[in-house]
Design a protein around this nucleic acid. Sequence first.
DNA 1: CGGAGCATTGAAGCGTTTCAATGTAGGTGG
DNA 2: CCACCTACATTGAAACGCTTCAATGCTCCG
Lengths: 225, 225
Amino acid sequence: MAETLDIGNLLKHTRLFEDFDADDMAVLARDCRTQRVARHDIVFNRGDHADGFYVVAVGAIKLVLPGPHGQRKVIEFFGPGQCFGEPFMFINRPYAADAQAMEDSLLVWIGKPAIDAALDVHPHLARQMLAGLSARLHTLMCDIETVKLQSANERLVGYLLSLPRKFDRTRFPCSKSLVASKLGLAPATLSRVLRQLIQDGLILVEGRDVVIPNSVALERQLQAA
Amino acid sequence: MAETLDIGNLLKHTRLFEDFDADDMAVLARDCRTQRVARHDIVFNRGDHADGFYVVAVGAIKLVLPGPHGQRKVIEFFGPGQCFGEPFMFINRPYAADAQAMEDSLLVWIGKPAIDAALDVHPHLARQMLAGLSARLHTLMCDIETVKLQSANERLVGYLLSLPRKFDRTRFPCSKSLVASKLGLAPATLSRVLRQLIQDGLILVEGRDVVIPNSVALERQLQAA
DNA sequence: CGGAGCATTGAAGCGTTTCAATGTAGGTGG
DNA sequence: CCACCTACATTGAAACGCTTCAATGCTCCG
């Protein structure tokens, strides 16, 4: 019972379930579970059966695609309020990627029957999920552009400009190795490209912090060359 | 009026609208248009405002991502009954890719207000759209795997094995240049890899037709090396 | 027959990866 | 408080795989 209330509290602040009242939530919660995972823990493996999906309450999760020769590529990151795994559930296919916790996290698992029932009654939920999937489709398309159509330099510059900035300062949201993987680069390459940008006077780097003194000059990198 | 009936006929055989009755369809059709496009015609351009989406009635459409240096990469193909453009509509962002007709085609355009209204009343429509988006998200993830994690050889072998087969025969669904683009390869590279597979006795190629005498041997290509 | 579009082939070049060595930072235990 | 350890980051040299360019071949259709 305490667990049920807990789930309601965790979910009702997410976009997905913002229009759920206490009753709706109680029904939903019957087919939900909370799940604590420690940093580096696996949430699911590629190939596992997807009979539900997850909402991040606290923490950060990464979706990683394993290649045939042991390489790994990060596809997406998920933070509080975001859900993951639902595309596989909707098409009744096993997970195509691994999900792993980047930090100690608290997740809510929601069973397929529960969400199916909720979709019949809550157009708002459907709309939010449609928007969520659409946004991710959009980013994935851009990622394909990134990975396939842009040079290492362009990828990094585009990524830097896409990060939230405070005045002339930005910050990598995670380790450089992970950033490299997201951009489809070898960590060594990321390092080299960063150095080049520094030498060209376009950025300054201190650990995860990046200073962009002249963002216009940086943007010119994308058109030029 | 003739146009309205026309649209109803075109749409009611698609999965998306299979549970619509005549009244539902009439309401929807008020905010729809049919659109004929000839081979090579542009349906929309990257950057255009997405205030609706398209359903393919007849023909074939490709979504193409333009790179910063004039390269182009095919992201998706759409055939009869499939819809495209809706991810951009749902997130109120301009199209991120170009849509172009691969053959003379007949499309139905559906306005955002109409689909919004329909979603409130038809959970089935929502579910179908969720499934459609999920499936495409799934394929895009696999495409990223293809483009980034696999060699040219692996990409082609994987692709060949994924094509529908009749006994030991398959067929490229479109020109080799387009296949190459979908696989993220230069046409020249596709040509070379095909030749290698032929020399290794794994396939036979005649124009668009491909014979796979021993699919098990071909699958071994994916694990080996 | 001739032309357009697609496919093939070779040679050369380029960007990224790989590998391995070295450097650096943050956290832990003596 | 320092020494150590682990994980991450950097750097260089070499190699690899794909692309590019350009020439040639092929095939279908007017």
